[in-house]
């Protein structure tokens, strides 16, 4: 993920957008986890038995998730500051040299795509 953002930064995407992508990607998983556990707990207390109770559970979980997201944001920001965050998120980028195999695969995929297009258009 951060390879994508590092690349986007190189092509002059505003740093803030790249940082938002990193953070959103990370916290989606945490929030999904919370959503799953809360829904399971609601199921266990028959929260989805009727149409009406399902709506109530949905509303409760939704608002709780929002509150938890804010609380999580506060704690995570504290943790980032505690490690010297100064406004810009920077990670170490691994050097990824282009290997011969990459070239072969890329050329192969391009050729296959071209072949399919030509067959489709009836050129061949």
């Amino acid at each position: 993920m951060y390879e994508i953002t590092a690349f986007l930064r190189k092509v002059r995407l505003p740093a803030m957008m790249a940082e938002l992508m990193v953070l959103i990607y990370r916290y989606i998983f945490l929030l999904l986890d919370s959503l799953y556990t809360m829904t399971t707990a609601a199921h266990a207390r028959l929260g989805y038995r009727t149409y009406r109770s399902s709506w109530r559970s949905f509303a409760g979980i939704g608002s709780n998730l929002l509150t938890r997201a804010f609380a999580q944001a506060g704690r995570s920001f504290d943790a980032m500051e505690a490690r010297g965050y100064d406004g810009e998120i920077r990670f170490l980028e691994r050097e990824k040299p282009v290997k011969g195999l990459h070239v072969v695969w890329s050329a192969g995929m391009l050729a296959a795509t071209a072949l399919i297009l030509m067959l489709e258009r009836g050129v061949l």
Binding site: V22, Y25, R75, S76, D78, A79, F91
Partner: peptide, 9 residues
């Protein structure tokens, strides 16, 4: 709360 990147490295 502390982890924010997508790889350990």
């Amino acid at each position: 709360d502390q982890i924010l990147a997508s790889t350990v490295e």
